[in-house]
Nucleic acid binder design. Structure first.
Lengths: 185, 185
DNA sequence: CAGCGAACAGACAGGTCTGTCTGATGTCAA
DNA sequence: TTGACATCAGACAGACCTGTCTGTTCGCTG
């Protein structure tokens, strides 16, 4: 029938895939389910993304894009390096607690795609490298000589809090992480 | 034919399942593959474990049992609380680097089983609670008043290093974690 | 108004998944 | 020796998976 405007199907599929892949896991969700939830036919899905793998990569890229927008908001809202870094902890916590502590989509994808050469894993590395780079850039303004080590340490705290909060189904690990992060400055 | 002694099939299945589930992910491995790798029929597999879910739980329980044995070795080899805690970091690193940085089997299982009420998740909680309890017990001997906070912080470092080492395919996060752990004492 | 392209509806192929069943064959204990 | 039991071999059911294909219908653009 083609009742909808051409070009919309891709966005609708991506939105449905994001919710389903994140909530249930990537391997656990079939393309039929994604297409049905998007209100779109499978043919339109394959026309836009080529394959399920292509859709998975698009899903993670979209999520990375949204996270970068969050980082931009943090940069706009806070001036000092210390405030910006702590705001990253808050944002991370807010994202995870918003969906029942399902964890970091990129770390979950890493668990589901064991091959380090998989395109999915490249998107994950890109995302995590960008996050590390942001922390590093901020820390260099405050304490240039300790910045490298400090950025590595803060990454451990962020990721540690992310996975621990899933296991414990609680935000408490983020409070521990943030408290320790403050003392590290 | 029944060429093997009765009772062996379960152990063989568990061994094959451990290797395959850990390496490729749980959802990615079918029971046919496990049975074939174990040199056992599917009927024997179901006779021993009832279902794939049962096998998955048994796989994680077995891995937890082996990790507890590792903890016992650490306790026997080191006397001081500080040495024992640092030895846990070394053991965690050794386990992960031994298999191409595939990460913590329990955290991977958590990614694959989103429902917190799933029996799999209960095994994960049991495992992580035991680890936290061990750290806590050791720290109480050295610095009783800081022990609680310190145990939480060391858990974040351990888990953070575990997942970061997978993304980076490197042991470097463990070095960062261990260095920070030493300064926290 | 004509035509191109995107999406629709839905069947289809080929494979894999979990789980069950039947009947034969071997091991071990009583 | 005999009976119970575990396992073997392999077919089978029913569901789900990814991906393709045919023919139709609509919206937008020139």
């Amino acid at each position: 029938m083609g009742r909808t405007r051409p070009g919309d199907a891709g966005a609708k599929v991506l939105k449905a895939a994001s919710a389903l892949f994140y909530r249930d896991g990537i391997h656990a969700v079939g393309v039929d389910t994604v297409a049905a939830e998007a209100g779109v036919t499978k043919a339109a899905l394959y026309g836009n993304f080529g394959s399920k793998s292509g859709l998975v990569v698009a899903y993670l890229r979209e999520r990375d894009r949204r996270w970068q927008a969050e980082i931009d908001r943090i940069t706009a809202a806070h001036a000092g390096p210390r405030e910006r870094v702590l705001a990253v902890f808050d944002a991370y916590e807010a994202w995870l607690s918003a969906d029942g502590y399902r964890g970091c989509a990129f770390l979950n994808a890493t668990s589901e795609f064991p091959d380090p050469a998989d395109p999915v894993r490249e998107v994950v590395r890109h995302h995590k490298t960008a996050l590390h780079g942001y922390l590093l850039a901020q820390l260099r303004r405050g304490e240039p000589q300790r910045a490298g080590v400090l950025a590595d340490e803060l990454m451990l705290l962020l990721e540690g809090a992310a996975v621990t909060s899933v296991v414990a189904q609680s935000a408490q690990p983020f409070h521990t992480a943030k408290r320790l992060a403050r003392t590290l400055f």
